[in-house]
Simulated scan of single mutants.
Amino acid sequence: MNRHNSIAFIINSLEGGGAERVMCNLLSIMESFFTQHQIDVYLILLDAVPEAHQCPAYVNKITLKTDGNLLQGYRQLKPLLRQLSPSLSLSFLTRSNMLNVVLSHQLGYQAVISERVNTSSHFPGGLKDTISKAMVKATYPKAHRVMAVSEGVKADLIQNFNVKEDRVQTVYNPYDIEAIHKRADESVTDLPQNAYIIGTGRLVKNKNFSLLIDAYAKSDVPEDLVILGQGDQEGALKEQVARLGLNERVHFLGFKSNPYPYIKQARYFVSTSNAEGFPNAIVEAMCLGKAVVATNCESGPAEILSGEYPLHITQFTPSKYGCLCPVNDATAVANAMDFLNAPTELARYSAKSTERAQAFSNEIFRQKMMACLELTPGAEDTAYVPAG
């Protein structure tokens, strides 16, 4: 028998983003278990903002109006959780995690928190960041269990935030490979006419698209470069492209709710981030059989592309499943791009991507989630049955 009659899931919002998408995927993947065992499932959103993701219909969704304020979150969440009386609550993202832990000790339920980013990199400096890190250090160790999205995130929590190793479990994000392929087959009207390589993500400093552009300019890549995404660095990046005389070859196609047709048609995928929690875009590209070039940032790329953590490199390194480069090294990224100019290497790493993607399937995620939430499968739960 399972000990849980009701479970609450808490996240800041369902705005566009990787954590929000994974939360909805989690609820879909676990639907058959929760419904079979008649567990009441609540999804609590702290902020009333436009939603880019949809949770499954079986979930009881409750939206608060905390406007991003931690104190308001505490005032509104406490009476709600007291009323719902869950035996367990799982939260995503820092603000939700801190509230979940504090309230679990006051209300007597188990708090499981999921850390989606490399916490040290996420709060690099300044007074506000210093306060946030101190609050994380005060709350996270008191969680019943911590789910880390990568081994790098796990190591950071243990080394820098006093979380005990036996309380942390790594659970990689889930990927529905069949669904990604299906969406990649949708038709789009703005594909470049020339062959191209691609990078995707928010156009912000941490994603370091300026490095991608510099490396592209240094390389002998014959294809064009496509960049998908939007953000406050867009103007500066376009100026950089113009300065390098690449206006005819670099295409900014904006944010795409379905990036997969663009990735599918690309020759290969490049990620030049300074920091990640677990880079969804890399695995999604691998699900589509795309070879990958990535910087060896904290956290995730090394685990995905080499199967190892930690991994220290000083130059472009062809790894087991993809091409790794030191962070902020344009020459190394250019070398990796030139390496994939060879059709034999491109074909070899495309095949390795397809192989590696299997390690991030929905079923493996479901098994890890069952263990983390201490759910006991019955005979009917031994196989994963997709929702719908």
Rank of each mutant, 00 (worst) to 15 (best):
D47M: 12
M337W: 01
Q110R: 13
S353H: 01
A294K: 09
N118R: 04
K128Y: 03
V149I: 13
P279M: 01
V136I: 14
Y74E: 03
A143G: 08
A8E: 00
C24W: 02
Y175F: 15
L70H: 12
A302P: 07
K142I: 02
P79C: 06
N296W: 04
Q230S: 12
T189C: 08
Q106R: 15
E234G: 09
C24P: 09
L80N: 04
N173K: 10
A184D: 02
R116I: 05
E374S: 14
L127E: 11
V101K: 07
A351K: 11
M98E: 07
L375E: 04
L103P: 05
G289F: 12
S120D: 10
H312N: 09
L88P: 00
N274H: 06
G125Q: 14
R82P: 00
P310V: 07
Q72A: 11
G307Q: 04
E284H: 05
A359C: 08
S91V: 11
G322P: 07
M369W: 12
P310C: 12
L237T: 06
D166P: 03
S210D: 12
Q83R: 15
F316D: 06
A336Y: 02
P192N: 13
K256P: 10
A266N: 09
S210N: 11
L45N: 08
M369G: 02
V117Y: 05
L375W: 09
S350F: 01
A347F: 00
V49M: 01
V188D: 04
S299Q: 05
I177F: 08
T295F: 10
Y58N: 00
Y74K: 00
A217N: 13
D232P: 06
Y140I: 03
Y58F: 15
M135R: 12
N160H: 15
F161M: 03
I7D: 01
A334M: 04
L46Y: 03
T130D: 14
A215E: 04
E234V: 04
D40K: 14
N2E: 12
N5Y: 00
V226I: 09
Y196N: 08
K164I: 07
K320T: 15
K142P: 00
L84R: 02
R183V: 01
H144Y: 15
L373C: 09
A242S: 13
A332P: 02
G307P: 08
L288M: 05
L45Q: 01
S353G: 05
L99S: 05
A266S: 13
D47W: 01
Y172T: 08
T200D: 04
P259H: 12
Y260Q: 02
K205A: 14
E31G: 00
